[in-house]
Write a protein that binds this DNA or RNA. Structure first.
Lengths: 290, 290
DNA sequence: TGTATTAGTGTATTATGTACACAGTACGAG
DNA sequence: CTCGTACTGTGTACATAATACACTAATACA
């Protein structure tokens, strides 16, 4: 707590001051009309976490040199989450991997929550480059969505955390930037760009859940076959149950074509979503005077 | 462990046997072609949880009567999650609310994980009735999606758990049943119905994240204004940062119209998604004869 | 040079899940 | 009718984990 308070009250809070002035602008993005007051008290917990996430900690020249960088700690924590899952990510596991005592980790991150904020952003990573030659918004958003899904599947523990809840780190913002950039070429106004972004981002997140669940099972050592058999058996409880006739029929009716993979299914759904967006873009264009 | 093993090996495992026979059918729903083997070993952890979730525990006539029903325990646990959040849901809190010792709870649920499986399904509740007169698939799916979002917002702790991960309880299946029922009137084949379902369900889940995050903050005592100010300040870090020019422009450009509420924004996006689905339905109809 | 500052250690506390042994109760077989 | 078995609830004990606190040692600047 002591070290943390010191960091909190540092002189370096320009970010939040700047932001407070433009709060009302975000209501557009947040699409929430109740919140147009310019000087509401900011949620204290969020601000603290956000500052810890963004502020490069002041070097502080005195005393012994740290043996590690904060990024070393983040990398160790991420490896644990990758290899053994989020539940294995304990402060003791991190310190052991780093060859330190448990409490030494607290010199780098004031508590576990802050460390998790850090690995969420680090694990998110940077988006792929989208604006390659020959692309249009649709191709770019397809790549964006696929890349985001791949990122979530590669680190299934990311989806185990309350995700959209702030704080948002620089990597997360980079993903937003890339998508806004791609959607800007549609000619939509900024409100509609934000809207279309949230449609694609929403679909991407929600429709990745099944693949994320599989990835988590695989990280735990379960084979894809075992996982599928388990889910299948679970859903199979609908069969013969009078409460679920249509669903039971759905999963027992053979369809001619070979079944899609999870990824093909995601891509197929994504194209339906993009169809809907395209329809909107075209009708907006038509309406606003060709 | 002892009590649990007893329940595991009861004679009542018809569900899993039945399901094992039809595993290959689910591959269609799961859209995963790798998994067409009929007799793969089922993921042990999932099966145990699933059985505990579905099997009404055999009454067992001997001994003292239980003072409570399992549902009493579920209700108590849900109240705690509702009022104080998932992190306040401890076995001690549940037992205290019930007026029992901590270990007594273990007579009703062999471990915390199982209790959580139970409150997830209980918290999911039943879907609304969709097939009222004058509806079509689009109206019905709109209601379905809105209701599911409302359910998630009402119990934001549901989205804090790895959701799509099985086991799926009867209430969850009821939601599936309702959606499949609604989509059946489109004339799509079963594979496509499953596909459209996963598009709507995916969008619904993912696009609800922001509202869920707000709901969680509110449950914690943060006002909507504080939450929005915090998120706004957080996103505002993009302003002036050379890495995020487009995003910064997006959130600072004033738009003429009044901003949408979170709910309006969700609904608007949902209609774009349904537009895409409708396009697909129509083109499928056109292609297959008409 | 010495003092303030900081990195890392060691120990203690608290919260939590859960194993285990026991006490009391009530049904049903003898 | 009664006794043993199966079952509910209690009390205690323990392992894991987060983290507070006091301490040692190192090091740059006044």
């Amino acid at each position: 707590m002591a070290g943390q308070k010191k960091r909190d009250s540092g002189p370096d809070n320009r970010g939040s001051i700047k932001a407070a002035n433009s709060t009302q602008d975000f209501t557009k993005l947040l699409n929430h009309s109740d919140i147009m007051h310019a000087s509401v008290r900011i949620d204290a917990d969020l601000r603290r976490r956000s500052e810890l996430l963004w502020n490069d900690r002041s070097p502080g020249t005195r005393g012994p040199k740290p043996g590690l960088t904060p990024d070393d700690v983040v990398q160790a924590a991420m490896q644990i989450a990758d290899n053994e899952g989020l539940s294995a990510l304990t402060m003791q596991a991190v310190s052991a991997k780093l060859g330190l005592t448990t409490m030494a980790v607290y010199r780098y991150f004031p508590n576990k929550e802050t460390l998790i904020d850090a690995i969420v952003d680090a694990g998110t990573g940077l988006p792929p480059t989208l604006n390659e030659p020959g692309g249009n918004w649709r191709i770019q958003m397809t790549r964006w969505s696929q890349a985001k899904r791949a990122m979530l599947v590669a680190r299934p523990w990311l989806a185990e955390l309350p995700f959209v809840a702030a704080p948002h780190g620089p990597n997360w913002l980079s993903w937003m930037e890339a998508a806004v950039d791609a959607l800007s070429s549609t000619g939509l106004n900024s409100a509609d760009v934000g809207q279309m972004l949230s449609v694609v981002a929403g679909y991407t997140r929600g429709a990745s859940d099944t693949a994320i669940s599989l990835a988590r099972a695989q990280a735990r050592g379960t084979s894809a076959e075992e996982w599928a058999a388990g889910v299948g058996a679970d859903l199979g409880r609908a069969i013969g149950d009078p409460r679920f006739p249509k669903f039971a029929a759905l999963i027992t009716t053979p369809s001619g074509e070979p079944p899609r993979t999870l990824e093909e299914s995601f891509d197929f759904g994504l194209q339906r979503v993009l169809d809907g967006i395209e329809l909107f873009i075209n009708s907006t264009k038509a309406r606003s005077g060709e």
